[in-house]
Design a protein around this nucleic acid. Sequence first.
DNA 1: ATGGATGAATTGGTCAGGCCACTTGGCCAA
DNA 2: TTGGCCAAGTGGCCTGACCAATTCATCCAT
Lengths: 250, 250
Amino acid sequence: MFSAVESRRLYRQVADQIRSMIATGELAVGQRLPPERELAEKLAVSRPTIREALIVLEVEGLVHIRMGSGIYVARRHTVQPAQPEREPFEGPFELLQARSIIECAIAEEAAQRATSSHIAVLDENLQQMASVVNDTDAALGIDRAFHTAIAGIVGNAALIRFTGEIYDQRMTPYFEKLASHFEGPDSWTRAMEEHRAIRDAIAANDPAAAKQAMRTHLDRSQKRFSEGFGEELFGEDEGGRAAARRNAKI
Amino acid sequence: MFSAVESRRLYRQVADQIRSMIATGELAVGQRLPPERELAEKLAVSRPTIREALIVLEVEGLVHIRMGSGIYVARRHTVQPAQPEREPFEGPFELLQARSIIECAIAEEAAQRATSSHIAVLDENLQQMASVVNDTDAALGIDRAFHTAIAGIVGNAALIRFTGEIYDQRMTPYFEKLASHFEGPDSWTRAMEEHRAIRDAIAANDPAAAKQAMRTHLDRSQKRFSEGFGEELFGEDEGGRAAARRNAKI
DNA sequence: ATGGATGAATTGGTCAGGCCACTTGGCCAA
DNA sequence: TTGGCCAAGTGGCCTGACCAATTCATCCAT
């Protein structure tokens, strides 16, 4: 299956250029970039094109845009998309082990400090989960939110971020396909029950129980994941209207 | 320590709205969004604002934009590190708290599985540390290596990477300047002793002692860091012009 | 009837110009 | 020295126009 080769948009080219200037140190960390109007003039493009390029870079975390002040090279491209020395991802089992260690510690900490408003957040998540057990895509999103909500109880942005990131690193296209096969109403219902056990332990302010419930949940999640290996998989396509028409012919 | 509260840009709000429509399933995977002009009309904003919002979402991996064809909900937001809920960066105390939770859990796990070759690695690190107590830059590198070596005992690449990343996130130019003031032979010698206590607990395969030793080390590290804040300082900003002026006055 | 070519319509990409909100720095008065 | 005010600069958002790419409908040839 082939898709049209997409010519490179100008704002992407501009973003690439600025990104490489940051990477080479030509633009130093913390340094202020020239104003949009000046960049547009220097690079001989329109100002909206510059804006669009800068938005790309900001979403990537390479720059920080401040209204009225200017655009600054981010202090540290923390957790960046393209980390060249980084493996594409660690093995899924390795990630699960890491989750087990980190998230058990977080659950333990959360149990020591949970309030009723924290528990209400978890309860709402459980309700949402109950209504989407037939929709794996939505369930994955809510599953993720449950885990980051526990980190949220600790109230530490770094932990929230790590929890989300480590969850997302499994979210490869491959894993998604796998999930669509091995996750279904049964497995999501079980996951939800495990979530409830975690919720209950945290609500009881019982760190040891919370840790154990989280470990149980992740162990079982790993088991479900292991059982899912073995399916034959196909490639992916994002579908356009022409593709839909081609599909119709098939 | 305060930083300016940044009002929410319109294109970010639009991106948030579309993102939540994708998360709730209102916009299905693979579905084509309305054209830019129509979205602009429906959401009562300008078309460039829509474009900017869509660029945010494309960089995040949630949509795929095709010229002349339309905008499609991505099959899956694959491994897109730019997390919308992410703060620009976490405060140093927040990172220390996160380290405390994560690294104590890792130390606990390491103590359960350490072998003599693992301990030899820690011993070599301690020797290296002893020879560079007068050189803060070198000491920081060896300090980092000690912490990642503990994660290495668990033998999990994800944990090693997280340990390194979370350590590095303190390594802002600001922090490095601070370290050059408050870290010296005395503090590095104390850190080394604390490292030794961690090493000993891990060597004894005593998880509780390892956890306690690590927590003690990080608590004291935090105390040393806090004491460094006795100085008159500017906020955690990326260096705006106002901050530069206040600096000049100091 | 079917397939290919062509042109129109639609859609995203880029530009120019304008105005508003916010930030910063300088100056002056208390 | 500190606080207030103002001007200049900067990012944010808008309107309108035109260009490039894609899709779809129509027409023509086989």
